[in-house]
Structures are given as structure tokens and as C-alpha cells.
Design a protein around this nucleic acid. Structure first.
Length: 624
RNA sequence: GAGCCCGUAGCUCAAUUGGAUAGAGCGCUGGCCUCCGAAGCCAGAGGUUCCGCGUUCGAAUCGCGGCGGGCUCGCCA
């Protein structure tokens, strides 16, 4: 795992945890010089308000290290620590249990930190040493409809990319399109024959048609074989055997033609390339439309399909052989890893290449040509072993080392399956996989029903509002749980507009925006923008603490590639805001100074929410 | 058979990566709109974190063994 940043360069010193970390680190060094540098202060937010705002958990481990009673150690730390400028006095009464040290921050300190947060790009100025990162996402296949599974590769991949961009890294998104190999050749072959026979008009072919052809061809080339074996084994009679033999013959014929077409395609024969291009245009057009509708920044230019590696495979495999990285095994060529995983197969017995070959070539290009020091694969968790094998092969070959000599970090940001409410993979009633577009449309229709009930949305805005709410709801549902686990998809829950959902988040932001519209109507002016923020009321304090933790949460997401942490945190901020708003009048505050301070707090909350939603790729609204 | 992942409230999910009394939402019970947006807020009930043993001052988290579920296993992509 590569270091993306060390605690020392956690540049913004406005995260209370970072500040307390430093203060307690110094205190430990003073009280226990022998443990200096070795003991982590272990600062964490308190779970209960009654125990203060933060706690230092260092005493227990330190006690063991220096051979003293943890409470004794805690007492020494408490005497040595200097936090008077930001916190209530820390003394013997702050020590609880086996040696926890509780810390309560002062309102003025929080107010000062909030001011800094507002003035430093929300605590997230660009990182000092930006990385170049390739994010592999989307992963569509030519001639196939996109289905529910793709929403995860698109939405999570885009959120990961946005997070890294927000932190200041340079991100290259790559759509590793499945646009090569025998299956595509089958479809090309079919189009070629049907077109020649005048039974098909290439100009009007749709993705639906292609999808149907793809499935039919796959079924046809595999037809009859198993049945024939069984019929012969159980002697089911000459008629049955003859029928099955005819099926198999037809399958063999189709397969032979597909292979011939593949050769023509690989040889660059114009008729085949033209048909392939037509299939690509149709598929990619639909793909980019879906990505745009989902508010993701995935473009056609960014795609680097399997076909783009075709000329690199043979020379690369030769290189692997020459350098002894790959070896023969049962006629095939393999690259062995060190662990228990089976080796990666990079060349078939017949000389053909496989998907692992292309993936190794992709790593080589991404690291050595593009110069990425981090390559992230946003792909289904069922491919976990495949990527372990491919990563191992690429490292063994030295392809994962940048021209500058840096070992690139190769990471599989795996995601689980979307399940229906019955706990089984999400399917339609008839058992088919759900088409992505149908999913988006249904979300839209359901959101529209809610938009029609809203008193804040005019009839002309309803469609657009419903669309935004629907996409935010879908995306939030996909991003808000631990990505590697399967999750249950339930329209009723996701679009119920109450609870821990995208619409709840949107609503929190919309309410804040409405405050500013009202302020304008009341002629409040904008002098408040320079007013000092005060943190006095408990509602203000709780909100302030959540806001201040925002930058560290974004950094954690960038490090662990877990967008759900940011989702949870934004929900917390929205929740704290709602509580604050319930008990702290803003426009009706008792005096102008309080009103102005609270307006600034509202504005900062809106900025953080919008920034966070931008990092996740969630669209926002003015009213709903 | 082997390997990987998972098991937390009735349901859907968290738990800052080993910290105090395991938290949210839905659902359920009760309260809050002549008052800045009720898609909201407040309160209550609801737990042997699958079971057992172990490591540790401390375990949902780490180790071992069970039980249950999912996924994956060289010439398809």
C-alpha cells in the first residue's frame, strides 16, 4: 500500500483531531521521553457527549510500554499537555475508566477553526505532491445492454475519481470496454450475412437488436453438444441423435464462421472493421448517455477498450517468455505468482490471448506510458482472484514500476452484487437482468409522484426536479454502504424520501438555500458575510464539530476508496444541521450578531454539503 | 475438494480499523407546525454482535475450531 500522505503533512491544522494529536504527542514526549515517537496519541471523537468531545486513548498502550499503571500514565500526560487555548482545562478529573482522557473544546476555539475552514477551501487545498491515478470504471461490453450491475462500476468509480481529483491528484478515467474477441466476431458475422441477404438495415439497428443477436449467437454456438453426449450415452435412438447432430453441426458451422470473421477483423479487413465500428458506435452512444444521465464524468475519449491493446499482446508475451517471467504449462503459457492462487494464463494452447493478457498489457500501459503511480479497478468483487493473478503477473514482469522507478499501487476497489428484497440477485419478475435504463426510468417515475405533491416546485420544474432527486437517490443508495458487500435494493426504501437517503441530504441543502432566499426577501443585506462566527449554543457546537471533521473524512475516502464513509458523514452533518435549525432561530435570532453568525454557519454548512455531494457526484437542487 | 468474502435490533445498514454503556434509518409507541420548508425535529421500546475456545488492561473487530450463507477455481470475456 502506498503512502498517500503522512500525518506530518496533514497540512490543514483545523481538524481538531490533528491539533489534539500534535498536542498530546508533545505531552507524551515530555512526560515519557523514552516513548517519544513510538506512542500514538490515539485521539478519537467521543461517542457520548457526556464524555466530552474527544478522547485520548494513549495511556493504556503506553502504560504497557513503560511498565506503569495506565492511570498513572494518564495523570502524567494530563499534567504535561498544553491545550488551554482550545479546550476546557484537562486535569485529573478528565481521566476516566482505565485511563481515557476526555477533552471538551471551547466554543471560541471551534469558532476560530470554522473561520479557517471557510478560508482554506474547506480544509482541502491541493495536496503537495499530486499523484497520477488511473481509475478503471464502467466496463461495458459491445453489443450488450447495460444492466443494474453497471450502475455500481459507474457510480462508485466516478465517486472514487472525483474524490482523488478533489484532493488534487490527476485522474485518468478509463472505460475498459469489452470490445474484442469471439463474441463480438459472432455478432459481426451475423450482421454481415443478414445485411448481405437484405434482411437487415444497418442504419436502423438498435442496441436492443444487438443484444438479442448476441444472446442468440451465444446460444447457437453452444447448442446441442451436451444433449448429444447424453443421447449417445443413454442410446435415445437415431432420430434424437440425428436432430442433435444437426444442431451441433450448425453450432460448429457458426463457430467456424465466427472464428473466420475474427481473423478478418484482426487482419483489418474493411467490411469487418466497418461493422465492428457500427456496433461500437451504437453501444457506446447508449453507454455515454447513461453515464451522463447519472451525472458521471465518463467520456468516450476516456475509453480504452480491449481492442486498443491488440497489437501489444504478442510482443508483450514474447517479452515475458524471453525474460523467463512466463512458462509453458500443459500447452498454455502461464505466469506463476507466489501465493496459493493459480497462475495467470496469458496464452492459450492455440496461440490465442486471454483477458488476463489484455489486463496485464493495460497495467503496463497505465503505469509505464501514462505514468500512473496508482491504478484502481472499480470492478465486481467476483473478479477478485483474477485481479490478484493479474497484479502478481504484472509486478513479476516489472510492468508495475513507473519510468521513475516507483512501484505503482494496484488496487481492486471491488463491489458486491445488488440484491432484490428477496435476498437474491436483483432480477425482473421473469428472471431477466434489469436493464439500466429501466431502472433509471422507474426511479424517475417514482420521484415524479413525490414532486407533484411538493408545494415548492412549479409544474414546469417537476420533471427536472424528479430526475435530479431520482439520480441522487439511486447514487446515494449505491454509495452509502460498504462497497464490497452485496446490498439489498428496494425502491420503496430508497425513494421513500425519509430517513438515511439521498433525498434527505438534498432536502437539508434545499432548506438552507431557502433561508438565504428568505433573507434576501427580508432585506437582510450581505454584511453578515464578514461577521464573526460564534459557537455558543449546543446545537451550534455539534454542527461545528461535524463540519470540522469534513476534510479528514474526504482524505480517508481517498486513501481507503470507501465513499460510504463520506455518505455517512454528510448524513451526520445534515442531521446536525436539522437539529441546530430546530433550536436555533436564524433569521428570527434575538439579535443581529447572532443572526449574522448563524447565517455564516448556514452558509458554511451548505458549502460543505455541496462540496461533499460534488465529491460523491450527487446532483443538487435549489428547491424540491 | 481448495481458495476468497460474509454472519450486528423485526427489516436495511454503520461502528473513525483493538477502546468506555455496539449506533443510525425504516417499522412500532408517544410528543412537536397561528412560529425561518414537517421530505423535518424530540423522546421511548427493541441486542448473548451465529456458537465455542484463545490472545489482550480491553474484542463485533485479531487467532483457532465449529455452524450457516455467498462467490470463485488455466486454455470464454
Amino acid at each position: 500500500m502506498n503512502e498517500t500522505h503522512s500525518p506530518a503533512d496533514a497540512q490543514s491544522q483545523l481538524d481538531p483531531i490533528a491539533i489534539l494529536d500534535e498536542r498530546f504527542r508533545e505531552a507524551i514526549a515530555r512526560a515519557f521521553p523514552e516513548a517519544a515517537g513510538k506512542a500514538d496519541p490515539l485521539i478519537a471523537p467521543s461517542k457520548k457527549a457526556a464524555m466530552g468531545d474527544f478522547q485520548c486513548n494513549a495511556a493504556m498502550a503506553l502504560g504497557k510500554m513503560v511498565g506503569k499503571n495506565p492511570r498513572e500514565v494518564a495523570t502524567a500526560i494530563v499534567e504535561a499537555v498544553e491545550v488551554g487555548d482550545i479546550a476546557e482545562p484537562v486535569d485529573a478529573s478528565s481521566i476516566a475508566g482505565p485511563g481515557f482522557i476526555n477533552i471538551t473544546l471551547r466554543g471560541e476555539a471551534l469558532a476560530g477553526l470554522l473561520g479557517e475552514l471557510a478560508g482554506t477551501d474547506l480544509g482541502l487545498p491541493p495536496v503537495g505532491s499530486p499523484q497520477k491515478v488511473v481509475v478503471d470504471l464502467c466496463g461495458v461490453n459491445l453489443a450488450k445492454q447495460m444492466h443494474v450491475g453497471h450502475i455500481r462500476a459507474i457510480v462508485i468509480g466516478d465517486a472514487v475519481a472525483r474524490t482523488l481529483e478533489r484532493l488534487g491528484h490527476t485522474v485518468v478515467r478509463q472505460n475498459h470496454v469489452g470490445d474484442w474477441g469471439l463474441p463480438i466476431a459472432m455478432v459481426v458475422d451475423y450482421l454481415h450475412h443478414e445485411n448481405a441477404a437484405g434482411r437487415l438495415d444497418l442504419d436502423t439497428v438498435t442496441l436492443d437488436d444487438l443484444d438479442g443477436i448476441y444472446k442468440a449467437m451465444k446460444a447457437r454456438t453452444g447448442a446441442g453438444r451436451t444433449g448429444l453426449r447424453l443421447a449417445q450415452k443413454w442410446d435415445l435412438g437415431p432420430k434424437v441423435v440425428a436432430e442433435l447432430e444437426a444442431e451441433v453441426a450448425d453450432a460448429d458451422d457458426a463457430m467456424a464462421r465466427a472464428k473466420a470473421t475474427l481473423v478478418a477483423l484482426q487482419g483489418g479487413e474493411q467490411w469487418a472493421v466497418d461493422l465492428w465500428q457500427r456496433i461500437s458506435d451504437i453501444t457506446m452512444g447508449a453507454c455515454i448517455d447513461a453515464c451522463r444521465r447519472l451525472h458521471t464524468r465518463i467520456t468516450l475519449e476516456a475509453s480504452a477498450g480491449e481492442s486498443s491493446y491488440r497489437d501489444e499482446l504478442a510482443p508483450m508475451v514474447d517479452d515475458l517468455i524471453k525474460r523467463g517471467v512466463a512458462e509453458e504449462d500443459g500447452g498454455a503459457l502461464v505466469v506463476r505468482g507466489e501465493g496459493k492462487d493459480p497462475p495467470a494464463l496469458v496464452r492459450k494452447g492455440d496461440g490465442g490471448f486471454l483477458y488476463a493478457t489484455t489486463d496485464v498489457a493495460a497495467i503496463r500501459r497505465r503505469v509505464q506510458d501514462i505514468g500512473a503511480s496508482r491504478v484502481i479497478y472499480c470492478v465486481d468483487v467476483r473478479q477478485a482472484m483474477h485481479f490478484r493473478q493479474v497484479f502478481a503477473a504484472a509486478r513479476k514482469a516489472g510492468y508495475a514500476t513507473t519510468p521513475a522507478g516507483i512501484e505503482a499501487s494496484l488496487e481492486h476497489a471491488a463491489f458486491g452484487t445488488i440484491l432484490g428484497t428477496d435476498g437474491r440477485p436483483f432480477k425482473t419478475r421473469s428472471g431477466e437482468s434489469v436493464k439500466l435504463q429501466d431502472l433509471l426510468d422507474e426511479a424517475h417515475d417514482r420521484a415524479l409522484a413525490a414532486a407533484e405533491r411538493s408545494e415548492h416546485v412549479s409544474t414546469t420544474e417537476r420533471e427536472a426536479t424528479a430526475e435530479t432527486v431520482a439520480m441522487a437517490a439511486l447514487k446515494f443508495a449505491d454509495l452509502s454502504t460498504d462497497r464490497v458487500r452485496d446490498y439489498v435494493f428496494d425502491f420503496d426504501r430508497i425513494l421513500a424520501f425519509e430517513g438515511d437517503t439521498g433525498p434527505y441530504l438534498l432536502n437539508a441543502l434545499v432548506r438552507i438555500k431557502s433561508i438565504f432566499r428568505n433573507a434576501e426577501e427580508r432585506g437582510v443585506g450581505d454584511a453578515w458575510k464578514d461577521a464573526p462566527i460564534r459557537v455558543e449554543h449546543e446545537g451550534e457546537k455539534q454542527l461545528a464539530m461535524s463540519l470540522l471533521r469534513y476534510p479528514s473524512v474526504v482524505r480517508a475516502v481517498g486513501e481507503h476508496l470507501e465513499p460510504h464513509r463520506l455518505c455517512q458523514h454528510l448524513l451526520e452533518i445534515a442531521n446536525k444541521f436539522s437539529s441546530f435549525y430546530q433550536v436555533c432561530p436564524v433569521l428570527k435570532a434575538e439579535d443581529d450578531a447572532t443572526r449574522d453568525s448563524r447565517l455564516r454557519l448556514c452558509e458554511l454548512t451548505a458549502r460543505v454539503l455541496e462540496d461533499g455531494m460534488g465529491v460523491l457526484g450527487l446532483p443538487t437542487l435549489e428547491r424540491m
